[in-house]
Design a protein around this nucleic acid. Structure first.
Lengths: 225, 225
DNA sequence: TCCAGCGCCCTTCCATACAAGAAGGGCATT
DNA sequence: AATGCCCTTCTTGTATGGAAGGGCGCTGGA
């Protein structure tokens, strides 16, 4: 794991440590089950234990770390049950969002979404799966904005980190072509102002995460509870 | 505000402070906009600044406090937009839950729910609005359990704190009779295994929170952004 | 060979001291 | 009288030392 010096630009040391650790966890530089300690991380980044401790608290609340008092702090293993329930939450909210958007589509909704899909195709052609992932996220976030509940997306974002770890393990595996086709189906339904079709398309799209999860559990059993 | 000594039973000092402060905030002993400081609370409870500081961090992440670096820490005012979006999230999830429960009702589902409603009627007759509120929460939580997504309720619970502050301001005002009637409608739909009717009933039930919010904003404008 | 007890080492937790920034009031200058 | 500067006094942020407790291995006995 890269003991890179923290970027000196941010506000407090504690928040820099939070960002650095979260990135390490999501990118699997810190693996589920890894044991870390305050003094360990403190020494690695050349800061005192106090800001590291506060970073641990924040990340523990986000479900990425597990602080076992007087014992140790470990990178939380991924809970299949938790991931499935996160997916349930996401599906509930995104279905409600797509119903709203398709029910009362704004004038430029379809245009904006179509443009995003075009970008995704470009990223797919360039085999840039990292960028594709970013655009995929932006697509869903844009839907939330169009429904007037962008704040709700922040919630999904928080609880999506678990699934993001799974996704990172399978970067390049997932079929971008298929995801794009599904996005197109969703946008078509929005253009036709057909909420029922939009809901069906969205559920089908999100259902693929279940397959991804099952595949990953068999590939990396040690990372799961 | 009562400077009661923290209950000595819990785990760490920090977690005790968290519980005490959260309770003070939700019950409006600490009002939105109130300025507090680490040393202030530390002196009040007879502990050092450190655990108080960690409690502040946790509560800030839950959206109850706002830490303004080097300046002060204030009890967050209630954001109407935030409350509405929390309600959107809750409605999305609870609708999905009730659809599941009504779609594939377990044998004893209706029985369990009917028993809860009976308790609510007892609490209502006794004018025990505090207990009624607890039972109301248990009703919804039970639905989540029946749908197999109890974890999802924890999420709602976190984001419900804002609305709980609103609710506390209007304790006794809300019509318990009406809420009970709505609960009965929901259970009837579940008993009939009619997801569409259950969804309609649930949406109607949750829609009342909007009225509560608007009423409270006009009654206590200082507590809102 | 097995097992119980003890002690070392590691962890997180708490207390205290110091540093750095922000804000407001008083004072001097214009 | 008005305005700009400084200084005092808050606040939160960071560093460090010790306290409390759990885990694990060694050691002594049976």
């Amino acid at each position: 794991m890269a003991a890179a010096a923290l970027e000196q630009s941010k506000e407090t040391i504690a928040s820099r440590v939070v960002d650095a650790l979260r990135d390490d966890i999501i990118t699997m530089a810190l693996k589920p089950g890894d044991v870390i300690s305050e003094s360990d991380i403190a020494g690695r980044y050349g800061v005192s234990r106090q800001p590291v401790r506060e970073a641990f608290i924040r990340l523990a609340q986000q479900g990425l770390l597990l602080i076992r008092p007087k014992r140790a702090t470990v990178v939380k293993k991924i809970s299949p049950v938790g991931v499935r329930q996160s997916r349930f939450i996401r599906e509930s909210i995104e279905v409600e969002i797509i119903r709203r958007v398709a029910g009362q589509p704004s004038d430029d909704a379809a245009d904006v979404l179509a443009r995003l899909i075009a970008d995704q195709e470009a990223a797919s052609d360039a085999n840039d799966s990292r960028r594709f992932h970013t655009l995929d996220e932006l697509f869903h976030r844009t839907l939330a904005r169009l429904a007037g509940v962008e704040y709700a997306w922040q919630l999904i974002d928080d609880h999506k980190m678990q699934l993001d770890r799974v996704r990172y393990l399978t970067l390049g595996v997932s079929s971008t072509q298929r995801a794009i086709a599904e996005h197109k189906l969703i946008v078509e339904a929005v253009a036709k102002a057909d909420p029922a079709a939009a809901e069906t398309a969205m559920r089908a799209h999100l259902a693929r995460a279940e397959l991804l999860l099952n595949q990953t559990i068999t590939d990396f059993p040690d990372y799961f509870e």
